[in-house]
Amino acid sequence: MIRAAAAAVALCALAAAPLWIPGGYYLNILSQILIYAIFALGLNLLVGYAGLVSLGHAGLFGVACYAVAWLVAAGAGQLVAALGALAVLLATTAAFAVLSLRSAGIGFLMITLAIGQILWGMAYRWIDLTGGDNGINLAARPQPFGISLAFATPFYYFTLIVFLVALASVAVFIASPLGASLKGTRDQPRRMSALGYNVWLIRFLAFLFSGLWSGVAGLLFCYYNQFVSPNVLSLGSSAEALLMVISGGSGTLLGPIAGAALVVVMKNVASAYIERWNFLLGAIFVAIVLFMPEGLVPGSARLGRRLWLRLRGVPAAGGAR
């Protein structure tokens, strides 16, 4: 009941954002938060629900970015370019998944890191295709149904719709039997295997789904910046996305969104006021690890619950120790 009300309030606040947020600049920041939230939602499917920590997801984000910029530059229409980019993305993701799912744990981390670096290296060195570190410009944002996305407000609504679709699809996926079996492969892969589940296939499907949303975020990012360069695929970008997931709370639906908001706000808004903003961001991460090791969203829920119980005079569970 309370949850449904909170969700409705949040949705209204997001839908009315152009009314209560002053000026295009802050609305653009909000669009960026949503883009990174989609990226983090996708990554969280692997990190949180499949227990597979990927350090190469910026590669998938970047492949979609490059594909759409390249196709538009080559003269394709926006719709064709977007669909083409998604096709390229899914093919890359499938290859990425086949290679990296040969292992789990640290091995998986290392393989994804390596593949991410290969994709970065290609962007950097395959100059004929990617323009090297000069990157590729995207001439214009798309115009779905004739609506220009050139300005902050329409682009924000476009991003918001994609974000809501991503959020809903991830929520449905997690609640589905496939989602439940994915969590099973995370916690008890051998038992799942013994029960007759195809652990590899379940993980593969989750990887595809995760790659899809990471790539969609990449597409939006390319539309937003109208520019792509190898920096997008760097290890730093992969690590940043992972930090969003972990700091917000991996394996929760809302955690990655909170993490994305935290990082984007620190990077873009706080940096205008505080010169050593990356020091502050580091300190916040340390504080999260110390006080809410499970992440911002589940951590604050736990602290909030404890505070609520204390206010009502009920000793917190286990508090009597």
Binding site: G23, G24, Y25, Y26, N28, I29, Q32, G135, A152, F221, N225, F227, S229, N231, V232, K267, N268, A272
Partner: peptide, 15 residues
Amino acid sequence: NPAGAKTKAQELVER
């Protein structure tokens, strides 16, 4: 980095 430059350019121009 490029994305940071874009955001900060928007900040200077629009805000």
